[in-house]
Design a protein around this nucleic acid. Sequence first.
DNA 1: GTGAAAGCGCTAACAC
DNA 2: GTGTTAGCGCTTTCAC
Lengths: 346, 346
Amino acid sequence: MRPTMKDVARAAGVSLMTVSRVVGGEPGVSPQTAAKVESAIRALGYQRNDNARNLRRQGQDSRTIGLLVDDLANPFFSALARSVEDEAYRRGSLVLVGSTNDDPRRERDVLSAFCSRQVDGLIVVPTGGNHSFLRSQMARGVKVVSVDRPVAGLDVDSVTVDNRAGAERAVRHLIDHGHRRIAYLGDRREIWTQGERYAGYVAALASAGIGLDVAVTRHGLRGQPEAAGAVRELMAAADPPTAVFSGNDLVTLGVVDSGVIGTVGAAGVGGFALVGFDDFPLSERLDPPVTVVSQDPAAIGRTAAQLLFGRIDGDASAPRSVVLLTRFVERGSGERGPISPPRRDS
Amino acid sequence: MRPTMKDVARAAGVSLMTVSRVVGGEPGVSPQTAAKVESAIRALGYQRNDNARNLRRQGQDSRTIGLLVDDLANPFFSALARSVEDEAYRRGSLVLVGSTNDDPRRERDVLSAFCSRQVDGLIVVPTGGNHSFLRSQMARGVKVVSVDRPVAGLDVDSVTVDNRAGAERAVRHLIDHGHRRIAYLGDRREIWTQGERYAGYVAALASAGIGLDVAVTRHGLRGQPEAAGAVRELMAAADPPTAVFSGNDLVTLGVVDSGVIGTVGAAGVGGFALVGFDDFPLSERLDPPVTVVSQDPAAIGRTAAQLLFGRIDGDASAPRSVVLLTRFVERGSGERGPISPPRRDS
DNA sequence: GTGAAAGCGCTAACAC
DNA sequence: GTGTTAGCGCTTTCAC
């Protein structure tokens, strides 16, 4: 069906080897011969089979990498994916992509299929599952960079952000504005970033001498609707919180969408406060604008890709853990005091 | 470096062919032999090289498809990509992914690289460039589905939405609410979807007997900040529009972010009106909530993937053009009358 | 400067 | 049931 070098060679009246040289851009072919070959290539519409090529060129790069994220439709991961792909394009590599959907089985399936296609390296947002599989791939020369989360028990390059410190800062900020009953809403604790952010929340409460009340914490919130439901529930309960710290963008959107921050209290005077992890579109345009802990997904992806390609190019130094810093962005929703009762600092 | 079937065969004391049968799950191997082979596979950590496999299994699927969108970081395309990938995962296929960034050169580079990797098919959001390249790939057996936009002059399956009708409906809605000076803000007209939506805008004006005034139209707005700047400019001009129809989500976000709809006019009474193409997060939570023409990117991606896999499985019927319908969602921003002057129906 | 032969890792086709 | 041979499309190696 597709023409091969053999077909081109026959059409041009040269040997297969000469075609290979022309296609590969190698020297040692006379201009006249090269011209003949090139016109045959055009006439037949020949295109090299890179899989066959990579099969023979053992030990050399396949110029393909694999990228596995939690959910490609999530704006955080899609921004990350885009910057990885940009970096790959610049380097002449292709990107195989997949979503784990937080399912270790799917993660393994997809990573395994990536490796069967002889990828040079992997950029992985690891699930909570077992990653001995990755270890054996690394032994076989596949480079691995983990991103957003470290891989448990595996000594690989990783690119993460200061989740715990960012969260602690956010919650301390709420405490500094007089809040003592602060809710935590996040996705599954088993997801490393969520665990870290929750740890930051707990630490901030502890160092302010505020007891942890799990009645105002919710884990496992996947997506906006679930988060909206959870916050409505909390607000309707007997002793509602005066502030919320939310563990990721989807949860923050849910809290905003539930309507609680727009309706309770007079803006500027007091009211239900919110600080969210992750920035999101229109955060500045809401009433009040939403205070967030912001991270830069494009920078995370770019850093991971640069690390990976460095490894592919032979960098054999010790694995690095790059921790990018979050930015705390005060906009209004985190700077309101509690409505009632006011601080009881007894 | 990586163990091969040969290594497994030697370790298990059988022939290479027996290993191939076991790995390929083919019958005709005794349970005892299979067990020996399987334990050798585990011991060596053998994994099949699917590129070599596909090379030999001529005419059979490589179980890899290529997906090329405008911008993977754009929420519309990332939602589409996720649903394509879900469908591929269900089918046991992998997805090579790329962004054209609206650049025909990059489109060609990436598509060409996809085909060199022997993909079974392509799902493409075509740029405005020349696509004779796709034609020659199709002649060689690569299946192609265009998505979001048709491919100019190429008879392939396509999945689009009723852009023109959706836009016309939106603008008619604004006219019905008394607006006669309605701005159009969109991305480059050369992008098919934008051209169609603009055509719908023009048609709605025409059938209402309103003259087209290009002073209140802006094309080529890529991204939120540019759109925000453009709308501020329009509002500051001598004879500002009383309503805006925006051509995609990013432009709508820009209009919202510019602050014009939140500040002008008393809500419910009158004020600057807005209808946007594409829904977006928090559209219901803004003040006023934003009326939109909504499309379902996941459904678009799923439909395209199902079409493509049907073709890969041998469906040779005539190319289909699937047009999914948009939904008009009234929320408030499109249902306010003009501030001044009121309708002059002379 | 050009070409013939061997072989990358695997499977189709055919032995036995 | 198991093994042998040939060959997928290409590059490496070596000969001329």
